[in-house]
Design a protein around this nucleic acid. Structure first.
Length: 249
DNA sequence: TCATTAAATTGTT
DNA sequence: AACAATTTAATGA
């Protein structure tokens, strides 16, 4: 497994430090909460904001590591999971562009409670825990964003538990897709979710073939359209309630 | 910009 | 797991 990638605020020395860079202007535009800051607050945030490119399979943060950054996905796709080594029930959550995570652990200054791993080449941004708290202490807009993030994520985990209990593969795929399309948590996703069927398989815990089959079924049902390297959602509500509709039919 | 080639992804067995 | 077909990305004229 590749080494842990931690963006450095200093960028002064070391292998890790050399991997992080300043964000590009177009990348800044994709960070939703920046718009809710005052000019002074934004200046501080921008000075602290680092960006790092991660390769498939790389760990962005690992269980038990001390919290250093609050992370956001600018491009690509990450997956969040509880530890696999202990045989604990594994819950996967996909993190598409626009998603920010780790606020719970940064808030409490606890070690990370889950692994974040890149499913494909991705761009990850981060601000230090210090700046995160600095913003939390004075920016109303930032607090709104974080609070909404926490609230929405709670709903995500409840949905994830339901997904785990579903046995029908098509339903698992449908609900997982619905979760990834969450407009409040992942504003960067838009209409088209860039995800390969292989990646979706890793996320849902199914083989690529079965995912392919499930996607075909969902397309026939008129809920999505399968495209090369991605899925276009036509009926988000339909995806969320797919199992119920299936059982009722 | 276009044509060619390589790589990635998909659909099927 | 392996294969062929399709789409995208990369390369160079």
């Amino acid at each position: 497994m590749p080494p842990i990638v931690i963006p450095s605020a200093e960028g002064a020395h070391g292998v890790r430090a050399s991997r992080s860079r300043a964000p590009r202007p177009d990348e800044l535009d994709s960070i939703a909460w920046l718009a809710s800051l005052t000019d002074a607050e934004r200046e501080r945030a921008l000075g602290d904001l680092r960006v790092v490119n991660v390769q498939p399979g790389e760990l962005v943060c690992r269980i038990g590591r001390p919290v250093t950054y609050w992370f956001g996905v600018l491009d690509g796709l990450l997956k969040m999971s509880s530890d696999t080594a202990l045989g604990v029930p594994i819950t996967f959550t996909g993190l598409p562009p626009g998603g920010w995570f780790g606020e719970g652990t940064v808030l409490k200054r606890e070690p990370y409670r889950y692994n974040i791993q890149a499913l494909r080449k991705s761009v990850v941004a981060g601000i230090t825990a210090e700046t995160f708290h600095w913003l939390l202490d004075r920016s109303i807009g930032f607090n709104r964003f974080v609070m909404n993030q926490l609230n929405e994520r709670l709903g995500q985990f409840i949905a994830a538990r339901q997904i785990d209990r579903l046995t029908h593969p098509d339903a698992r795929v449908a609900r997982s897709l619905a979760a990834l399309f969450h407009p409040a948590l992942y504003p960067g996703v838009g209409e088209l979710l860039r995800i390969t069927q292989q990646e979706l398989g890793y996320l849902v815990g199914l083989s690529r073939q079965r995912v392919n089959e499930a996607l075909a079924a969902l397309e026939v049902a008129g809920l999505i359209r399968v495209e090369y390297g991605g899925v276009r959602v036509l009926d988000l509500a339909g995806l969320r309630g797919y199992a119920a509709a299936d059982v009722a039919a």
